[in-house]
């Protein structure tokens, strides 16, 4: 069920602002790919083009191709809503639906996909919460509001919600930046477990995290304020952190930046 992503010649814009320029890369299935780079370099924007969430912002648009196996996500016949059902997303701040219970949060996407029947829903909800390493902590309070959990639990709830619909790709936009180290460790363990089933792309500001969880790492950078972000290089994580091809990458990962 995991799929390969192949991006070629991708540009993204916010109104008149050119946010990212000419990005091409291949993301392998059943692997974790990390995006690193300074703030404002377009890595989150690029991530959001992979499930067509970029265009949710008024005035935002995308040029180029994103192939999910052999389908172009930006083909005019493709419905963005259908894209988001196969490419799931986890955000920087945990965002469970505040008025819904833990159970309903996980079931929300299933209901959108027309999954009916209490027994079937119960099964998938349990499976997803187990998949997100959250089941044991919440199994006795599934009817309680999701907003009552701790930040780390909320983020795992959001991951459970995203994997409940069995997406082919899971995008994570700095999923641990609002969490404490213990919760971060829990999420990182989870990523390691999930990659056997999903294609995972994670944006992170934490280079140790990228080194710990990812198989491949992409480094993004900008030439200066107002300039579009670019992909500098993408390679195996071990290579990026020990012997990168580009001087810019080396400067960034060793902290000699700017």
């Amino acid at each position: 069920m995991a799929k390969r992503i192949e991006v070629s010649g991708l540009h993204a814009y916010y109104g008149g602002t050119h946010a990212i320029e000419d990005i091409s890369m291949t993301i392998e299935p059943r692997s974790v790919t990390a995006f690193i780079g300074p703030s404002g370099c377009g890595k989150s924007t690029f991530l959001r083009t992979l499930n067509r969430m970029h265009e949710v912002i008024p005035g935002a648009r995308v040029e180029g191709k994103v192939m999910l196996d052999d389908e172009d996500l930006y083909d005019s016949s493709v419905d963005p809503v259908a894209v988001r059902r196969v490419v799931g997303m986890v955000f920087q701040r945990p965002n469970p639906f505040p008025t819904m219970s833990i159970y309903d949060n996980v079931a929300a996407g299933l209901k959108l996909n027309g999954v009916r029947g209490k027994r079937r829903l119960d099964e998938i909800v349990e499976e997803s919460l187990r998949g997100a390493n959250l089941w044991n902590e919440v199994k006795d309070r599934l009817g309680k509001p999701g907003a009552g959990l701790s930040g780390g639990q909320q983020q795992r709830l959001c991951i459970a919600r995203a994997i409940a619909v069995q997406p082919q790709v899971l995008l994570m936009d700095e999923p641990c930046s609002a969490l404490d180290p213990i919760s971060t460790l829990a999420i990182e363990d989870l990523i390691g477990k999930l990659k056997s089933q999903y294609t995972i792309v994670i944006v992170t500001h934490n280079m140790q995290q990228a080194a710990r969880v990812s198989d491949r790492t992409a480094f993004f950078n900008i030439a200066g304020t107002g300039k579009p972000g670019k992909l500098i290089e993408i390679d195996d994580t071990s290579k990026i952190f020990t012997n990168p091809e580009q001087k810019g990458t080396e400067d960034y990962i060793t902290g000699r930046f700017g």
Binding site: N51, M53, V56, V81, A82, V83, R84, R85, G88, M89, F91, R93, N95, P96, F97, P98, T99, M100, A108, G109, L112, N113, C158, R161, A162, V165
Partner: peptide, 29 residues
């Protein structure tokens, strides 16, 4: 309505009306 709630629904593959039912109306009730 917080943008995060709107995006949470859209990222799950909600149509605009489904997003309104999941995020906007409960928040605005």
């Amino acid at each position: 309505v917080p943008h995060a709630h709107v995006e949470a629904a859209l990222a799950l593959g909600a149509t605009r009306w489904e997003m309104i039912r999941m995020s906007v109306l409960p928040f605005g009730r």
